[in-house]
Design a binder for these strands. Structure first.
Length: 298
DNA sequence: GCGTCCAGGTCTACC
DNA sequence: GGTAGACCTGGACGC
């Protein structure tokens, strides 16, 4: 079935899809030519379906679903879609701040700033662990293996991201050797088992009323999640107080602001401090500006 | 083709 | 609180 959904003001579908590397990791699949995003969703009713999302006519998105949905199922899918595309969050304050700085006026102009996320916090967190201390190529291998070997098979080459229960059911050795998770295996396994047993509920992080500093500590309490991963996870929870500096961002910052001359993270922190609770997002916009310039010339 | 070295975050033990 | 070393993999490089 096909239907449309309205988009909020200042929303750019394609820039949200390409906001960071998530669109290249399964179950997300991006079609650059048709400018569409595809993935499998699981509904509360237990049904799985493949969905293709495309820019529609003025301020609408076209949604193509492989299943005919009843009222509640459609409502459920729309909620998940809007959550992934960050359509329910208010960025007006961020854009207002951006307009006040000459070098950031491009952001509200093109509707950048929304960061694509998965339907569940679990998927985002496991993927984030898979980005730590390795190349992007290895991240792709790990995530792809998780989906293919432990995820629900929807069609021939179409897999869902595995549930905590599915990962909890395998051994550390399996995660090391078959998934190629290496030393991350015990971290992935421990979190999956804690969730599967009901010892921890990380999906509530998205609606948490905790102050960001407290939430950061809670995210950090998960083994395998250090300052970089926690900062990035927070960005996917709608909190931008942490920069989440990794080697790539660090290098990029030095290129942009210091003519390639290396310095310390304290210098970077100091640079973005005036941006308050939006500093993490301004930092990300800075280091990814050239993607936007290259992929989406004004 | 094989061996060696390095880059990439996080944890733990130690000072 | 700060620091060194271990963890594991893919890729680059030299032979």
């Amino acid at each position: 079935m096909t239907f449309t959904i309205n988009v909020p003001k200042n929303f750019s579908f394609w820039r949200t899809v390409y906001s960071h590397g998530w669109c290249a990791l399964p179950p997300f699949k991006v079609d650059k030519e048709n400018k569409s995003l595809e993935r499998i969703f699981k509904l509360a009713s237990g049904k799985h379906l493949a969905v293709v999302i495309k820019d529609g006519k003025k301020e609408k998105l076209d949604i193509f679903s492989t299943l005919k949905l009843n009222g509640n199922e459609k409502k459920d899918l729309i909620f998940q879609l809007k959550s992934c595309l960050r359509m329910q969050e208010d960025y007006s304050e961020f854009y207002k701040e951006a307009r006040e700085h000459k070098e950031y006026r491009w952001i509200p102009k093109i509707g950048a700033g929304r960061l694509l996320r998965a339907p569940t916090v679990f998927e985002d967190v496991i993927k984030m662990i898979c980005t730590t201390n390795c190349s992007w190529a290895l991240t792709e291998i790990m995530v792809s293996n998780l989906c293919k070997k432990l995820g629900f098979k929807f069609q021939d080459s179409c897999f869902m991201f595995p549930t905590p229960e599915a990962i909890a059911g395998v051994t550390e050795k399996y995660l090391r050797k078959e998934i190629r998770a290496g030393y991350r295996a015990p971290y992935i396994l421990e979190l999956s088992r804690r969730i599967a047993k009901g010892d921890i509920d990380i999906d509530k992080w998205r609606t948490s009323s905790l102050p960001t500093e407290e939430l950061f500590k809670e995210v950090r309490s998960v083994k395998g999640i250090g300052p970089y991963a926690a900062g990035n996870i927070l960005k996917l929870l709608g909190r931008y107080d942490y920069l989440a500096i990794d080697s790539w961002c660090r290098k990029k910052y030095f290129e942009i602001h210091r003519n390639g001359k290396a310095s310390t993270d304290t210098i970077i922190e100091r640079h973005y401090k005036p941006f308050g609770k939006w500093r993490g997002l301004f930092f990300w916009m800075d280091v990814t500006k050239d993607w936007h310039d290259r992929e989406f010339p004004l």
